[in-house]
């Protein structure tokens, strides 16, 4: 066996635990017969033992504390961004709701003009819609952002958004409207003047339209 190349290589492989049983035997036999290799092998092992004998050093006092003080405080933005990344479904739902409500709000604010559903025989005076005496409205009546005065008859439903019903004969008691003293409404009467009601009203219409579709 060549001492410098093969034997030394085997020694290192032995130290790394990479030798097969056969190779271990080869090395052992060679070492028994070769003084210089035996010395080499001994020096290698001894240097490792010496190496391992060096004193363990410890981190200075307050090492951890110092680090904790130096850590960057997380920006809130980063925190939120990470949270969104970790909860994609909730984020998507949140964005959906934000868009939906902002849509509703803008629709609410744009709707400040007086609008009346098209019916014949109605009179509009300023922001008041009048159903004159002797006129019969056959369909549903919707008034937005205006007051309604009924002297005649409405056969369908009446919906009043952001407005009041005006009764000429002043038979309003405690703010409640006595419909009987006004003209006749044969259908349902609905008054919507709050944002929440307005939303409910829209949702209601939405579901009604769905059901009428399915029918």
């Amino acid at each position: 066996m060549n001492c410098d190349k093969e034997a030394v290589k085997l020694m290192h492989q032995h130290l790394d635990g990479d030798l097969t049983k056969e190779e271990e035997m080869q090395l052992k036999i060679h070492l028994e017969g070769c003084d210089s290799c035996q010395k080499h092998f001994h020096e290698l092992k001894r240097s490792i033992t010496l190496l391992k004998s060096v004193e363990q050093v410890k981190a200075p006092e307050n090492f951890t504390k110092d680090i904790m003080q130096k850590l960057p405080t997380e920006k809130k933005q980063v925190k939120y961004m990470r949270w969104f990344k970790m909860h994609p479904i909730i984020s998507a739902a949140a964005i959906f709701f934000i868009l939906m409500f902002s849509g509703l709000f803008t629709a609410w604010e744009q709707d400040s003009q007086l609008t009346v559903s098209k019916q014949e025989g109605l009179i509009i005076e300023g922001d008041t819609v009048i159903v004159p005496e002797g006129v019969t409205v056959k369909d549903d009546l919707v008034v937005k952002n205006g007051n309604l005065k009924i002297d005649g008859t409405v056969e369908g439903d009446v919906t009043l958004i952001n407005g009041e019903i005006i009764d000429e004969k002043e038979t309003t008691i405690d703010g409640e409207v006595l419909l009987a003293s006004a003209g006749d409404i044969n259908g349902e009467f609905k008054e919507v003047d709050q944002l929440f009601d307005w939303i409910l009203y829209h949702l209601n219409n939405f579901f009604k339209s769905i059901f009428s579709w399915s029918e």
């Binding site: 050093v57 410890k58 981190a59 090492f63 951890t64």
Partner: peptide, 14 residues
């Protein structure tokens, strides 16, 4: 993280 640093401080310092 403090516990993590505590655990590794001597090893990494060394």
């Amino acid at each position: 993280y403090e516990d993590v640093v505590m655990f590794f401080q001597d090893k990494i310092f060394q």
